[in-house]
Design a binder for these strands. Sequence first.
DNA 1: GCCAACGTTGGC
DNA 2: GCCAACGTTGGC
Length: 136
Amino acid sequence: MNYWLVKTEPESYSLEDLEAKGEEIWDGVRNYQARNFMEKMNPGDLVFVYHSGKQKSMVGLAEVSSAPFPDPKAKEDEKWLAVHLTYMQHLVNPLPLAAIKASPDLQNLLLLKQSRLSVMSVDPLDAALLLKMTRS
DNA sequence: GCCAACGTTGGC
DNA sequence: GCCAACGTTGGC
């Protein structure tokens, strides 16, 4: 199983929106590094959902519920990808960015290293620690 | 509101 | 192919 983290601005699309809908197509990603991660997604993979902007906290969990497929919104000659994500839960304890920054064990999270990346992988050990910290 | 990081665009 | 200019993201 692989672990991922997706960022979203709650003002445009929030975890609550995902919860209400149950499953959502995660499209519109227009960054090559992010696409390369999406390419490796498999159904059943766990996805941490992070709210950027005012909240800047990890707020929930979702599950990859499809194989990656061509982004239907992409132009015909472009090879962008989308996946389906299914809502799992809100975290018992949302994890603020400040707490992540303050944790010596989480310093190699791509979230901290590449602030603009919107889809990224999470190391299994980091994922286990995150799950522990959020008691989910 | 500002700025750092970084991706993209276009002139050369 | 380089690089300056510009736009966007996201934290502060």
